[in-house]
């Protein structure tokens, strides 16, 4: 501890002598009575000068070097975080847009497919209806034709009934022994009975 006193006497010196050395050195330093060091005005000049030098230097280093650098680091970090956040938001918006576009395209394709299917269905059913109509018309014609033929055959058959009846009658009359009856009489008689 006794920096100024050290080396002034032999190592084995007693306490009182050391105090003496201290006082001597203190006296040598300036005009004071070795009292309370903080109130020793002889040291004020030196303390003030070196405080001004060191504190001035500290202020200069802080204001010009250290603090702007820390401020720059903090600023960079803030900017970077802000930038990253904006980039993330931009990417999210892009993704949202892509999803929306995809969904729209999907909806359009679905609608188109529906339209095509509907058109196909309509076309097919029209086709079928047409064919059915043609077949039905054909069938109707054939039916009519067949009916006409049946009618002809029936008419023809009915026309021959008188003849057969006349023949049969004349043969019956002959068989009954009614003599020979003229064919015209028989025909008249048949005609009369048929008209009844």
């Amino acid at each position: 501890m006794a920096v100024p006193g050290r080396g002034h006497g032999p190592a084995g010196m007693k306490m009182a002598e050391e105090v003496h050395t201290e006082t001597q050195v203190a006296h040598g330093e300036g005009a004071h009575s070795g009292g309370f060091p903080p109130f020793d005005t002889s040291t004020f000049g030196s303390q003030l000068l070196w405080l001004a030098i060191t504190f001035g230097l500290l202020y200069y280093l802080m204001a010009k070097v250290a603090l702007p650098r820390i401020a720059g680091i903090l600023e960079d970090r803030r900017d970077r975080i802000e930038g990253d956040r904006e980039e993330a938001l931009r990417l999210k918006e892009e993704t949202d847009n892509a999803i929306a576009a995809y969904e729209q395209a999907l909806a359009e394709a679905r609608k188109k497919a529906h339209t095509i299917a509907q058109a196909n269905r309509d076309k097919l059913s029209a086709d079928v209806a047409e064919k059915r109509a043609a077949v039905e018309a054909d069938l109707g014609e054939k039916l009519a034709e067949a009916e006409a033929r049946i009618r002809d055959i029936k008419a023809a058959a009915l026309g021959q009934v008188g003849e057969i009846a006349t023949e049969a009658t004349s043969e019956i009359v002959e068989a009954l022994g009614g003599g020979d009856v003229s064919a015209a009489d028989v025909a008249d008689a048949v005609k009369q009975s048929m008209a009844k």
């Binding site: 920096v3 040291t43 070196w50 060191t54 504190f55 500290l58 802080m62 070097v65």
Partner: peptide
């Protein structure tokens, strides 16, 4: 007035050197 370099001056210098 004595403006000599003392242990106080030394520790002021050390303080500034430490901080900076």
């Amino acid at each position: 007035v004595d403006f000599g370099f003392t242990n106080s001056s030394l520790f002021m210098a050390i303080t500034v050197a430490t901080v900076a």
